[in-house]
């Protein structure tokens, strides 16, 4: 491994973690990401055994997951593999596909609710213009948060991930933190 020491998207040595009442927001620095797009004639790749999901959906396997990002395009996530060249690994499972390393392109914030469910919905209603009735576990959308293009993934009833451009990590954190703090005060 290189002797260079990475910093987080928020510019620190260690990932940020903060709690707001029952909500916890954690910067996930271990998440490896790579995009996968079908080329002409390629059918049905099953990277890491995953069945690639359809529009608006996210599917998870053991540590690995895929979300639909566009027609014939997906983002593949691998928990804890950020240190490796993930694209190179994914390529072996995706013959005939265009694969691009995306790990450093994004900051991932995991928002977990420790109790209840309303606060999570309340938080999301301040951030994204998505009908939450249609945003249960397994749903994922790219949308705008405060003019920043983000992927929002409903990992479970009590867990949402927000992936934003790494360069705007601080602004995205501010948006999430502000909304969470205001919720806490209610």
């Amino acid at each position: 491994m290189s002797e260079l020491i990475p910093i987080t998207a928020l510019g620190a040595a260690l990932p940020r973690l903060a709690s707001f009442g029952a909500l916890e927001i954690r910067e996930n620095v271990g998440l490896a990401l790579a995009s996968l797009a079908l080329r002409r004639g390629t059918i049905g790749p099953r990277p890491f055994g995953l069945t690639l999901p359809g529009p608006g959906r996210w599917i998870a396997g053991q540590g690995v997951a895929a979300l639909w990002t566009g027609p014939d395009q997906w983002m593949i996530e691998y928990e804890g593999r950020a240190d490796l060249g993930f694209a190179a690994e994914l390529k072996q499972f995706a013959a005939g596909c265009s694969v691009t390393e995306q790990t450093d392109g994004w900051v991932a914030f995991e928002i977990v609710l420790r109790a209840g469910s309303r606060p999570l919905e309340a938080l999301l209603s301040k951030l994204i213009n998505i009908d939450l009735a249609d945003f249960g576990p397994g749903r994922a959308r790219r949308t705008g948060i405060e003019h920043m293009s983000c992927f929002v993934i409903r990992r479970s009833e009590a867990h949402v991930a927000v992936l934003g451009a790494r360069s705007s990590a601080a602004s995205l954190w501010h948006a999430l933190e502000t909304a969470a703090k205001r919720l806490e005060r209610k």
Partner: peptide, 13 residues
């Protein structure tokens, strides 16, 4: 045409 695009602006320093 067989072509795929994706932005990598943020991925590389």
């Amino acid at each position: 045409l067989d072509v795929q695009l994706i932005s990598t602006t943020d991925a590389w320093a």
